[in-house]
């Protein structure tokens, strides 16, 4: 039973004020040290704002902090993203059961909460993450990585909520090569915010999330997540045989 003699945190999370909150089964007065996995730099937890980007492992008295807390809630990540910020700090439980933090530079974007890809339209629902609320009309803009001019459709902001749609026909009509990829943005007053799904723990969404495909003539239109979990649309001309 040696393993269970190690004291284990009951709760270990970064709250909305960027404070690392750890609850132990009994009171504890030791100091948590954070260590940057890449550079070995060490810091206390008093001001997480000083942490540079990357993964930081937590230790107490020279031992890694063991935790029984999975580290976050999905609602908690949504609530955290309601505050405008340039850096995101998250606690997580590593597969070996120890506490670590990730620190990432962030810019305002639209966190995608729903995608509908039917009836010749791509419709997006989302919320503003890490930015100020916005009210009023906007555009959902599709920008081809190479070739055609941008195509857009109606959108609107209601505080943090965003909805927008774009017709697939104009995208398909602009098809100049076998494959064209379009990145999606919410645009208001000449400012473009990317659309992405990042407020969870799912890695490799590119391969794990499959959206329905629509057909416009011989062009197949399918939304997908890129390697950075941004939302994009792939248009490809179907082979004669298929």
């Amino acid at each position: 039973m040696a393993a269970s003699e190690v004291r284990r945190a009951v709760t270990s999370r970064v709250d909305n004020d960027d404070m690392l909150r750890i609850e132990w089964p009994e009171p504890d007065d030791g100091e948590i040290i954070l260590r940057h996995a890449e550079t070995g730099q060490e810091r206390g937890t008093a001001d997480l704002g000083l942490l540079s980007a990357g993964v930081w492992t937590a230790s107490l008295g020279g031992e890694p902090v063991a935790t029984d807390d999975p580290g976050f809630s999905l609602d908690g990540l949504q609530a955290y993203a309601q505050t405008p910020r340039s850096r995101e700090i998250r606690a997580f439980r590593a597969p070996d059961g120890t506490l670590a933090l990730t620190v990432r530079e962030v810019e305002p974007y639209i966190e995608v909460t729903g995608v509908v890809a039917d009836d010749g339209v791509i419709e997006i629902e989302g919320v503003i993450a890490y930015g100020e609320p916005i009210h009023g009309p906007a555009r959902l803009v599709a920008v081809a990585r190479k070739g055609p001019e941008p195509v857009s459709g109606p959108a609107s902001f209601l505080g943090r909520r965003f909805t927008g749609s774009v017709q697939i026909a104009p995208l398909a009509e602009a098809q100049v090569r076998r494959r064209v990829f379009w990145d999606l943005y919410a645009e208001v007053a000449d400012v473009r915010m990317p659309l992405a799904a990042r407020l969870d723990d799912i890695t490799d969404k590119k391969n794990r999330v499959r959206f329905p495909a629509q057909r416009e003539g011989r062009v197949r239109v399918r939304p997908y997540y890129t390697e950075t979990d941004s939302l994009a649309v792939a248009l490809s001309i179907e082979e004669e045989s298929s």
């Binding site: 393993a3 269970s4 190690v6 935790t67 029984d68 807390d69």
Partner: peptide, 10 residues
């Protein structure tokens, strides 16, 4: 045996 993480039902 040994400790394991626990769901908060959240």
């Amino acid at each position: 045996g040994g400790p394991r993480p626990r769901s908060r039902q959240e």
